[in-house]
């Protein structure tokens, strides 16, 4: 459903993605791992056109992503994004945040969207916080609202960029458990994460990104448990046994 074909991306002279070829199938949960600066965020942001790329193709069900084309708005409604720092709209309540996209962008009926938004918020455990502004919510709660906001668009896939790394340790669990539920329902997700334990549990596949290239990819149990590539081995050793 998300297909990368020899994707190259540079910031000025600095080449960040050096020919990425990979595919995320429908219903898969793919975790994208790799060292800091290896290009994980950049790759994710290219998928919904927050960054452009210079050559190659990113295809969503066959439709090419082009950050500068008019079609990008439609693609973004099909592929939702969850950010490391939540990026909730601070002047709107949790419920309004969740309703914003379906009502304002998709033009859906407000009453219907409200019912659905409430349902999403309930599912992420925020039934009692719907009318709170983001500033009155903890990081973990904000990130769950952000996930509900993504779900309300009824996306075909969700991109998540380190969804738990801006959270205090005690809030990581509540967000991961929401993602676990989504994985069980076979929501297609591409997740940048440093939570190797979580990746082991929920990922169907893992891409290991190294200096702008996918050095190793495959079933999660293979890549994470029996990595073949020396750099993957070293990376996993470092993140699972930090000094």
């Amino acid at each position: 459903m998300i297909r990368f074909e020899n994707v190259h991306k540079s910031f000025g002279k600095h080449e960040v993605l050096k020919g990425i070829t990979a595919e995320v199938d429908k219903g898969q949960v793919v975790c994208l791992i790799g060292a800091s600066g290896s290009g994980k965020s950049t790759l994710l942001r290219c998928v919904n056109g927050l960054e452009d790329y210079q050559s190659g193709n990113i295809l969503i069900d066959g439709e090419r992503v082009d950050a500068h084309a008019a079609s990008i708005h439609n693609i973004r409604t099909r592929v939702a994004m969850v950010f490391q720092r939540f990026n909730l709209f601070p002047h709107m309540t949790a419920l309004q945040n969740v309703m914003e996209g379906p009502v304002q962008v998709l033009g859906e009926d407000k009453a219907e969207v409200r019912a659905r938004a409430e349902e999403h918020l309930r599912r992420v455990g925020l039934a009692d916080k719907m009318n709170f502004y983001p500033s009155a919510l903890s990081g973990g709660q904000q990130q769950r609202v952000a996930i509900a906001r993504a779900l309300a668009m009824r996306p075909e896939a969700i991109l998540l960029d380190e969804p738990t790394s801006a959270l205090d340790p005690e809030m990581v669990g509540e967000v991961l458990s929401v993602l676990r539920d989504l994985a069980e329902e076979h929501m297609t997700m591409l997740i940048v994460t440093h939570e190797i334990q979580f990746a082991r549990e929920v990922a169907s596949n893992v891409f290991f990104l190294d200096k702008g290239l996918i050095a190793e990819h495959g079933a999660a149990k293979d890549v994470l448990v029996r990595p073949q590539n020396a750099r993957t081995q070293e990376f996993l050793r470092r993140v699972t046994h930090p000094v």
Binding site: R76, N87, F89, E100, G101, Q104, V105, M153
Partner: peptide
């Protein structure tokens, strides 16, 4: 305004005009 706000608005498919007005 935090650049993350613009990105969040874009990521739900908002076009420039609506993004300016609402976000």
């Amino acid at each position: 305004v935090d650049k993350g706000q613009v990105e969040a608005a874009k990521s739900i498919g908002m076009k420039h005009g609506k993004m300016m007005r609402r976000i």
